[in-house]
Amino acid sequence: MNHQTQLLQLNHVKKHFPIKKGLLQRPKNYVKAVNGINLTVSEGETLGVVGESGCGKSTLGRVVIGLEKLSDGSIQFKDESIGNLSERKLKKYKKDLQMIFQDPFASLNPRQKIGNALEEIFIIHTNMSKSERKQKVLSLLKEVGLKEEHYDRYPREFSGGQRQRVGIARALALNPSLIVCDEAVSALDVSVQAQIMKLLKDVQTKYELTYLFISHDLGVVRYMSDRILVMYLGAQVELGDSEQIYKNPLHPYTKALLSAIPRPNPKHKRNRIKLQGDLPSASNYPTGCPFHTRCPIAQEHCAEIVPEWREIEENHFVACHEV
């Protein structure tokens, strides 16, 4: 893998959703879904993003492809700042940034045939003739392991795995360089999951794609990712090569997260680190280190000082005072 060229750079990216109240709909408070992410994604790599539900990993993905506007910070994509481009200027980049959605049953228009749904992408972006478009769609279907006869089918006639293949075809249609996979395999059966992950890896090598692979499934992320970013409450807590994170987790949150992976061997005794309490509300953001309310090794200063983002070993970063 080529880890040299930077494709995507996030500088202090924040996404705060206002909670509007009262007659005038003035924002009274903010849900800090993504709270200051600094990140560089290199061309051709797969960056896994893990964290529990509500930690802002999906919002991060949506911000990157432009579905949500940034609240603060900037996004560099191929040497251009795309953070808050207008809709029209963004269209140029939308071809390059695509997304594979979580729920294969909700991500396809139930009233549209698969062939027409995929052709529509070419209607929007190209001036191809009808037969050219059809040829293109047929080759796309073949690419993702579907057959020509699927062209005239409605989404309801497909299984979950097949629908997700269509979702991949849609993401591939415009030859993007970055694909955000937002829980792309989470809704699928384990056996189908494996096929879809293999397909994702196959097309990645073929088209030199870069993935931002968002998932809560640690096993899946480990299989897919070159590097892994651990998020907690909208903040990044640890970043490192896949193996570093799994073999040598540094942050107490990562340790707890990894200890929750189910082991296939029932005799294997797990040293499960159980976190106390619930995830704090993102609208009532903790001071200092966001994790201090549940951290087993928290000290007094953790509640006051935001921990620095430090490189502990090569390419292995962590935000914790106690490491």
Partner: peptide
């Protein structure tokens, strides 16, 4: 808020197209 509408946005469909071809038929 359905994912297929979000998906149409990510492939760059205009609001008019989304409204007439994807929202209205549903």
């Amino acid at each position: 808020n359905q994912e297929y509408i979000q998906a149409m946005k990510t492939v760059g469909a205009s609001d008019l197209r989304i409204l007439l071809k994807h929202v209205l038929p549903n």
